[in-house]
Design a protein around this nucleic acid. Sequence first.
DNA 1: AAGCCATCCAACCGCACTTTG
DNA 2: CCAAAGTGCGGTTGGATGGCT
Length: 266
Amino acid sequence: MGRQPCCDKVGLKKGPWTTEEDKKLINFILNNDQCCWRAVPKLAGLLRCGKSCRLRWTNYLRPDLKRGLLSESEEKLVIDLHSQLGNRWSKIAASLPGRTDNEIKNHWNTHIKKKLRKMGIDPLTHKPLLPEDPQPPQSPLLCRFPEFAEADPAFYSNSPGFCTDEVPLVEPHEILVPCAAAAAAAPCSSSSSSTSSVSSSNSLVKAEEIQLPSMEFPDSLYFWGADDFIGWDPISQQGEGKIDPFNQRSGASAVFDQEPWKFELF
DNA sequence: AAGCCATCCAACCGCACTTTG
DNA sequence: CCAAAGTGCGGTTGGATGGCT
């Protein structure tokens, strides 16, 4: 008994979303209690399948999203969580408020993987790439990632083997969200049942757990402003108060720079 | 300037899991 | 309890972009 497709793809649009479509989806979701994703495109006047709408919203349009490359501390957390959880991107994303599983997955595949390999670490097992290496006295990552250990001595010291099979799964409530990450959520103006009901994504749930005020959208919708959004990331700016120079190709600038409509919505 | 190649990331696909009747 | 519908998740793809020759 096969599953039915999520939608009859006939006459449905695929590929990149246009500004107009984004506008429709945002307007609909903000102004309606989203009942079920399958109904959203029809009600919002979109020629998309519900799944596509959900993805677009959760990965790109959600106002609580943080854009740009992951900061070093976020990267560190991702590596740590990956060593415990494996490719459970949504679970990892749940510990990084404002980040999506897709974003983390992409970042892992394009940046972190490479970085780890360069350091002689198998990104899959988090163990040294060379098997002839005598077993390290402590975490291999600790040996090859001294700067991480320096930054956070507790990091890795608690994760001896880094074999995903050997480490028990961490329950969401057991994952400690670093203060910086938690703080990242705080500045966002908020509180509405609308958004939290809109998306059941783990990151939102997690955000609530760490006292993230639920989202509310100011009438002027100034939160869409690039300045607000970029300045909204205390993690990438922590410490020296600088923005990650590699952020220039980030989706943030891509979408916010080019879409002035978002500032005049509603 | 043009062509090629590598990289990045948004979006798609299909399976798994959860919910509902 | 079961089947169908709805949703979540992880893997993969393909277009856009930038760098190099």
